[in-house]
Amino acid sequence: MTYKLILNGKTLKGETTTEAVDAATAEKVFKQYANDNGVDGEWTYDDATKTFTVTE
């Protein structure tokens, strides 16, 4: 399945996607991606759209 991440960081905004077997796996990938890019904030997940959002 394809999962999407929306980044609403103070210095980085954008979107990315990943292929993962489940939401938990996608979340690990996205949290590492956000961490690597210096984005740390509040996370939400919408199962209907398979979209994670992180907002600083």
Rank of each mutant, 00 (worst) to 15 (best):
K13A: 07
E19L: 13
K10V: 13
M1I: 14
A26V: 02
T16L: 14
A20R: 03
L7N: 02
G14Q: 12
T2V: 14
T55V: 09
T16M: 14
Y3S: 00
E56L: 07
N35C: 10
V21K: 12
N8S: 08
K4F: 13
K50C: 06
K10P: 09
G14N: 09
A20N: 03
K13P: 05
L12Y: 15
G41V: 02
Q32P: 02
T2F: 09
T16F: 15
A34Q: 02
V39W: 14
A26E: 00
V21R: 10
W43E: 00
Y45V: 02
T16Y: 15
A23P: 11
Y3Q: 01
D46H: 07
E56Q: 10
T49W: 04
V29I: 13
W43S: 01
V54F: 05
V39F: 14
A48L: 14
N35G: 09
G14A: 14
F30E: 00
W43M: 05
T11W: 14
M1L: 13
N37L: 15
G14P: 04
Y45P: 00
V39L: 10
L7Y: 13
K13C: 11
E56W: 13
N8Q: 09
I6Y: 07
T2L: 14
T17I: 10
E56V: 08
T55P: 01
K28G: 07
Y45G: 00
A26F: 00
A34S: 05
E19G: 05
D46L: 04
A26R: 00
V39M: 08
L12N: 08
K28C: 07
V39D: 02
L5F: 05
E27M: 15
K28R: 13
T18W: 07
K31E: 04
G14E: 09
T11N: 15
T49S: 09
E19Y: 15
D22L: 04
Q32W: 06
W43R: 00
G9E: 02
T53H: 06
E42A: 11
V29W: 13
A20M: 03
L12K: 11
L5P: 00
V29S: 06
T2S: 09
E15S: 15
D36N: 11
T55C: 06
K13E: 05
L5M: 05
K28L: 13
E27K: 10
A26H: 00
L5C: 08
T16R: 12
V21Y: 11
D47E: 15
D40A: 13
A26N: 00
D47S: 13
G38T: 04
A20Y: 02
G9Y: 06
K10E: 08
E27L: 15
V54H: 01
A34W: 03
A23K: 15
F30C: 02
T17H: 12
E19P: 05
T17G: 04
V39G: 03
A48H: 10
L7Q: 02
E15C: 13
N8H: 10
Q32L: 09
T51C: 05
N8C: 10
F52I: 01
D36F: 08
A20P: 01
L5T: 01
N8Y: 12
K10D: 06
T16P: 03
N35I: 15
T55F: 09
K4I: 13
D46E: 07
L7H: 03
E56F: 10
L5S: 01
D46A: 04
G14M: 13
N8E: 08
L5Q: 00
W43A: 01
E19V: 15
T49A: 07
K50S: 06
K4L: 08
K28F: 10
D40I: 14
D36S: 11
F30T: 00
A34I: 06
K4G: 03
T51Y: 03
G9L: 13
A34V: 08
Y33G: 01
E15H: 10
L5W: 02
E15N: 07
F52N: 00
I6E: 04
Y3F: 14
L5A: 03
V21M: 13
E15F: 14
T53P: 00
T17Q: 11
A34N: 02
G41H: 02
L7R: 02
T17F: 14
D40H: 15
K31A: 05
L7M: 12
T18E: 04
N8I: 13
D47F: 10
G41E: 01
T44K: 09
G9A: 08
N37Q: 15
D47Y: 09
T51N: 02
D46S: 06
V39H: 04
K31Y: 06
G41L: 03
E56Y: 12
T18G: 03
T17A: 07
D22G: 04
I6W: 04
A24R: 10
E15K: 07
D46M: 04
L7I: 14
G9P: 03
G41R: 01
T49P: 02
W43D: 00
A23G: 05
T18S: 05
K31D: 02
A26Y: 00
T25E: 15
T44A: 08
A23D: 06
Y33W: 14
K13D: 05
T51R: 03
F30N: 00
T25W: 09
K10A: 12
A34C: 10
E27C: 12
T17D: 05
K13V: 11
D36I: 11
Q32N: 08
D36Y: 09
T16G: 04
G41N: 02
Y3P: 00
E56T: 07
K31V: 06
E15G: 06
K13R: 11
D36Q: 13
F30M: 03
A26G: 02
T25I: 08
F52H: 02
K4T: 15
K31R: 15
D47N: 09
K10F: 12
D22M: 04
K13N: 08
G38H: 09
G9V: 08
G41D: 02
V21P: 15
T11L: 12
D47V: 12
M1A: 12
F52K: 00
A26Q: 00
T2E: 10
G14R: 13
V29L: 10
G14H: 10
T53M: 09
E19C: 12
L12C: 12
D47L: 08
E56G: 05
L12M: 14
T18Y: 11
T51A: 04
D40Y: 14
A20D: 03
D46F: 04
D22A: 04
M1N: 14
Q32H: 07
Y3G: 00
A26C: 02
V29P: 01
G38R: 07
T44Y: 10
G9Q: 04
K4H: 13
E42K: 11
D46P: 00
Q32F: 05
N35Q: 15
F30W: 02
F52E: 00
T55W: 10
A20Q: 07
Y45D: 00
K10L: 14
V21F: 12
T25H: 13
F52V: 01
D46N: 11
Y33N: 02
T49G: 05
E27H: 11
G41W: 06
K31H: 08
Y3H: 03
Y45N: 01
G14C: 13
A23Q: 10
I6P: 00
A48I: 12
V54P: 00
Q32S: 08
G38S: 07
A34H: 01
A23L: 10
N35M: 15
N35A: 15
Y3E: 00
Y45W: 04
D22Q: 03
K28A: 13
T25Y: 08
G41F: 03
F52L: 01
T49Q: 06
E27A: 12
G38Q: 08
E27T: 04
K4R: 13
E27I: 09
N37M: 15
N37A: 15
D40G: 08
V29C: 07
Y45F: 08
V54S: 02
G38L: 07
I6R: 06
T17R: 10
I6C: 05
G9C: 10
G9R: 04
F30P: 00
V39N: 03
T55K: 06
G41S: 02
K4Y: 15
T49M: 06
A48N: 12
A34K: 01
E56K: 04
A48C: 07
A48F: 12
T53N: 04
T53F: 09
Q32A: 14
